[in-house]
Nucleic acid binder design. Structure first.
Lengths: 195, 195
DNA sequence: CGCCCGGTTGGACGACGCGTCCAAGCCTAC
DNA sequence: GTAGGCTTGGACGCGTCGTCCAACCGGGCG
């Protein structure tokens, strides 16, 4: 169990994530200390292991994303628009904090064993989409599909396309990318019927 | 550079992947030795590092998948059917070799830095889908979408849904899962127009 | 037969990073 | 001024990786 981390230290850590290697076991505690300016002994005063530092970075990132998604949604708008807003907010977050986002996917092996991280991914990515898909199916503004499956598919598509954009282009334009993903999921790949 | 691995040793290693922890840095070389029956000294005779063993496992897995995908495709069938066959073959492979598939995604951080692994993922997952999407768009059997984006989206959706099925249900029925993914991508989530 | 040579193996070893511990310093509150 | 909590440097034990070597095995060849 870690002591509650003082805000300035949390900021330093989150700000420093970009300078660390992607594969967490190639990051030495001394690297974290150097990059963040927090000495090793102090890190171990607050965290009981290196993996707990990773967990801290990732849960903080997911909490912020969960909040950003909630803020992006206009409860009065039509479901398809709300869904678009959620996806755009998720992509915008990937673009804003690329380092932690890549840390998450690069270390899914560790992350998968931490229950609260799985819950965080669910709260930030899966659940907001699943809810809207179910609502839309119920009121007829979306075609009825299995919301569980479709939400998972969107999660996979959004994160993989987002990370691909980050890796290849080294940046991510949320409007541009969501403008590519959403029409694909909206209309599918069935050819338009000729009238 | 690793010596060419004798076939019996390769088989032992691939067969043993399921007994190893998901996070590669939690796997000790001694664990690999015990699980596979190949002594540590012999492993280091063929591989120059633990990561090279991981790379070997993953590239072999991706090569098999690439072959399976090529075999599943009937060049005379219609593009949408060929696309469905490709996706089904990918899911079937995830179901058949769940351990290596999970190893791949759990250690993307290491895998991402190895160029031939990235190429392997492309050859097994991305390229076959991209090609069909482009062909279908050209001959009108698929709605024209950016094949690059759509192939990436399908890759994300297929792997994430496949792994979710493996983790939750502990098995994967390729027909069932492809029967859920394909209609979603085929028709999208736009509500059907009332005539 | 005796030799060579490549593969196989056990065991020892150095390097290195993690996590622990302690003692000294510092600051604040009382 | 003193007590208690935070901060830090430095040293240490421990486990794992990767290396090395010497011994062994078995087949091919002169």
């Amino acid at each position: 169990m870690s002591r509650s981390v003082p805000a300035p230290m949390a900021d330093k850590l989150l700000a420093t994530a970009g300078e660390l290697a992607l594969s967490w076991d190639e990051v030495r505690t001394e690297d974290i200390a150097e990059a963040s300016g927090i000495p090793r002994a102090t890190l171990y005063y607050y965290f009981s292991s290196k993996d707990e530092i990773l967990q801290f970075l990732l849960t903080r990132m997911l909490e912020r994303l969960t909040d950003a998604v909630a803020a992006a949604e206009d409860p009065d708008a039509a479901i398809p628009d709300r869904l678009a807003a959620v996806v755009r907010a998720q992509l915008a977050h990937l673009g804003e904090f690329p380092a932690t986002a890549q840390l998450l996917t690069a270390n899914l092996g560790k992350a998968g064993k931490l229950p609260d991280l799985a819950a965080g991914i669910n709260a930030a990515f899966h659940e907001p989409v699943r809810r809207l898909l179910a609502l839309g199916a119920a009121n007829g503004t979306l075609r009825p599909v299995d919301p569980e499956i479709a939400a998972t598919a969107l999660y996979g598509a959004v994160t993989v396309i987002g990370l691909r954009s980050l890796v290849i282009d080294n940046h991510l334009d949320a409007d541009e990318v969501s403008g590519q993903i959403l029409p694909l999921f909206w209309s599918g790949i069935r050819p338009d019927v000729r009238p």
